[in-house]
Every structure is written in structure tokens, then in C-alpha cells.
């Protein structure tokens, strides 16, 4: 993919920070307002997909390589599992909210609810990286015509 016209690129440059802020807002205040890790992750994945469509696949992969996306995916899952296992160590049960038990926060404060914001961040990382990874792989796949059965590897090697 080559990227789009200058109009699309300019609009993308203007709105991208707002989309990122919205995704972060949804994630970080997920325990207080509607939203949460899933919504924030999907919005951030949509931001990366918008950048990929506007500036082209090579541009996006230079700034956010596929290996990094895979690592972030694993890191998200890992944080989630570590928090769950820490609950096993400190609270006696898997997935117990040990932070809330030891440091009870004020209700409706940003830093409250113990492990829930941590888990929200983990889920956000996981969902965003997974969906971006799927999109970047699907964008790289060529759809060939019927007669032309030879495969084109050029796009894969350019990375």
C-alpha cells in the first residue's frame, strides 16, 4: 500500500493525537466511567490502522515493527497473568484484588480499585497489539488473479 493523498495525510496528522488521548482516557478511567481496556485497545488499534492506511504500510512498519507488536501482545498477556499470580501470593487466591485489600483507595479517585487499572492497561496493550498485528498481516497479503499462480514475495521481503 502506498498511502493516500495529501488531504488524508494532513487530517490524520491533525486528529491522531486526539484519537490516542481518547484511547488512553478510556483505558485509564475504565474503572470509573464507561470504557475500559477493551474499548481503549480497539480505539488505539484503529489509530494505528488509520496511520497505516494514510501513510502506507512501509511507513507504519518502520515506526512500529511487527516484532514490537508481537512483543507488546505478549507483554500485555504477561502483565495480566503476573497480577493474577501476585494475588495468589498476597491474597491467597488467584485473581484476588490484593492492592485494594492492602491500600484501599478513595472511591471515584483515579488511583483506586487496586489491580483493576493495571489489568485494564494490560488488556489494552494486548487487544491493540493483536488487532494491529492481524491488520498488518492482512494488508500485506496479496490477492492474485486466477491465471497468475506465481506468488509474489516482494512485499514480504521489503520489511
Amino acid at each position: 500500500m502506498k498511502g493516500m493523498t495529501i488531504i488524508v495525510q494532513t487530517i490524520t496528522r491533525l486528529v491522531k493525537i486526539f484519537i490516542l488521548l481518547y484511547g488512553l482516557y478510556l483505558t485509564l478511567t475504565g474503572h470509573l466511567t464507561p470504557g475500559g481496556g477493551f474499548a481503549g485497545g480497539v480505539v488505539i488499534a484503529c489509530l494505528y490502522i488509520l496511520l497505516t492506511l494514510a501513510y502506507g504500510r512501509q511507513w507504519a512498519l518502520r515506526r512500529f515493527p511487527r516484532r514490537l507488536a508481537g512483543s507488546l501482545d505478549s507483554v500485555g498477556g504477561f502483565i495480566f497473568l503476573i497480577v493474577a499470580c501476585l494475588g495468589f501470593g498476597f491474597g491467597g487466591m488467584f485473581f484476588v484484588n490484593f492492592l485494594e485489600r492492602f491500600f484501599p483507595g478513595r472511591p471515584f479517585a483515579l488511583l483506586s480499585a487496586g489491580t483493576i487499572p493495571l489489568n485494564n492497561i494490560a488488556i489494552c496493550l494486548k487487544v491493540a497489539a493483536s488487532l494491529f498485528l492481524v491488520f498488518i498481516v492482512m494488508a500485506g497479503a496479496r490477492l492474485l488473479e486466477k491465471k497468475d499462480r506465481t506468488y509474489d514475495y516482494k512485499q514480504e521481503e521489503e520489511e
Binding site: 497479503a141 490477492l143 492474485l144 486466477k146 499462480r149 506468488y151
Partner: peptide, 9 residues
């Protein structure tokens, strides 16, 4: 997509 690449339909 994979099936389309393989069979063209």
C-alpha cells in the same frame, strides 16, 4: 484470503 490465493475464487 488464503483460499483465494490458492484457487483464485
Amino acid at each position: 484470503i488464503r483460499l483465494y490465493q490458492r484457487y483464485g475464487t
